[in-house]
Amino acid sequence: MVTAYIQILIYGLINGALYGLVGLGLALVFGVMSYLNVAHGALIMIASYACFWLFHLLKVDPFLSSLLIVPCFFLLGVIIYKILFDSLKRFPEGQKTKNSLLISFGLLLILSNLVTILWTADERAVTPHYAGFVIQFFGLRIPYIGIGAVLFAVVVSILLDLFLSKTYFGKGIRAASQDHEAAAMMGINVGTTYLISFGIGVALAGIPGIIVSLSSFNPSLSFELTNKALVVIILAGVGSVYGVLLGGFALGLAEAIGVLFIGATYREVIGLVLFVLFLLLRPQGLMGKRS
């Protein structure tokens, strides 16, 4: 019985890793430039398709395909930024959020419908030969894919945090996210910083795309993923990379614990109720500082 409980918690943790990854890119873009890119879910969905086609046509392992997908998505992000979002940077903060929300909503519609037209809305998934493999100990069964997802979430968070705190660009991004004007005066090119942050934000959509493709996906998943990402970044606040990761894990575990007590029907409701209650107690998010 206890084994079954722990087993359910393990799946909660695995789901949590995905939630964290889904929130990461959105949090970065929102934190640095107040752009609310609701097309993030659509970009994740496109990454799933990229992973799917690489696997089916070229037999590339899904986890390895991240080496190709992430740089390509960075470029994609740069292009999208140049065409659609560059003109917003001169607006005050509130209007930046509003207009980026509208533009990215249009982008969400375009991307999910373009994919439907190109590849139909059929449900797809990537199933490598190790899809059902598990590591067993003490009667617990931990799937390979789940371990991969958790590892990916942790490694990507560490790399992103190192990039933001150790490199020149990373410091520029952090400075711009705290105070653009001061950053501009210190000689940081805010335009380039925005461009690169947006690129990284989109590149970060590539990773959860791979994890999602190992479960199952279709074009309309974009909306669900965006909603999930919104919940995660608010739970976690946008200030810290590890906060987002922790927020994701917390949400996944909260859902699993809810299943143990009330059953699977209200699984997501329990996660959300905890999330709203938590917000009321800590309105500044998991890692945010009290202002």
Binding site: N227, E268, L279, L280, P283
Partner: peptide
């Protein structure tokens, strides 16, 4: 939820809508 400020309010209320839908 009015205790929440700015975008925290936005997404707190989104949470409320999701809870209502699933329930």
């Amino acid at each position: 939820t009015l205790r929440l400020r700015a975008h925290y309010f936005a997404i707190g209320t989104l949470g409320v809508a999701m809870i209502a839908l699933i329930t």
